[in-house]
Amino acid sequence: MTAPEHGFGPQSIRAMELEDLDAVQAIENAAQLTPWSTSHFRDCITNANYLCQVVTRDDDPVAFLILSRILDETHVLNVVVAPAWQRRGIARLMLEQAMDQARKDAMSVMYLEVRESNTGAQVLYRQLGFDVCGVRKNYYRKGDGHENAVLMQCLLSGGHK
């Protein structure tokens, strides 16, 4: 699927493949305080209940999205854009596409957790129709301590976009 330009040139969203693992791991390591392991990504790619996608530019991954889908619920597990490509609408593009597909597949709700300190992401999620529905205490590791996660949900049948 080729996506329209969003300020960073032509890109496409496609299924993540095992051959993408090195690039995905590099993006994860560069952007996350507590990165997932390569084996975690491999497990997601090979599990039918997970939807794993990459956004590529010139065939090179610049971002990825991992969702789990169980019954009528979708859970955003990981959405990461390489630091050099952030603030160009890539995360919004991935999430909008995933939300559209979830609606087509009769999913009723999409959940995610976000670091309490990640106010920029929280603004994006609110713009996409997500609302705060709880807090997970000490959910994320942070240096030598922990940080709360803000739990957010978007009711997909309500027509938010």
Rank of each mutant, 00 (worst) to 15 (best):
E147F: 10
G129R: 09
N78R: 15
A102I: 03
N29I: 02
V109A: 03
Q25H: 05
A30E: 08
L151C: 07
D58N: 12
L71Q: 07
G9H: 14
A30H: 02
A3H: 06
A15N: 03
E17F: 12
N47Q: 07
E147L: 10
T56L: 04
A91P: 02
A31P: 02
A48V: 11
A98W: 14
R126S: 10
A84E: 15
F130A: 04
G143I: 14
S39E: 10
D43G: 04
I27A: 00
R126L: 08
P10F: 12
C154N: 11
R103K: 14
R136L: 04
D59M: 07
N148P: 03
E28L: 00
M152W: 12
G89K: 10
S39N: 06
M110G: 02
D59P: 00
T38R: 11
C154E: 09
L18Q: 06
D58T: 02
G158L: 15
A98N: 05
Q127A: 15
R57S: 13
F8G: 11
L95R: 10
F8V: 11
Y111E: 04
H6C: 14
I70H: 09
M99W: 09
Y125F: 12
I90P: 13
I13S: 15
D22W: 02
A26R: 08
L112R: 03
A98E: 04
G9V: 14
I45W: 12
M94T: 00
L156N: 03
L67K: 07
M1T: 03
E28V: 00
A91E: 05
H6S: 12
I27W: 01
F64W: 06
G145K: 08
D58P: 01
G89L: 14
D144L: 08
D58H: 10
L18H: 10
E147C: 08
M99D: 01
L33T: 09
A15P: 03
R115M: 09
T119N: 03
W85Q: 12
N138W: 06
R42H: 09
Q153G: 00
S117V: 13
Q25T: 08
Q101D: 00
E73N: 05
E116P: 01
V123I: 15
D43M: 06
L33P: 05
S39C: 05
Q153N: 00
F130Q: 05
Q11D: 00
G134Q: 01
Q97D: 12
A149M: 06
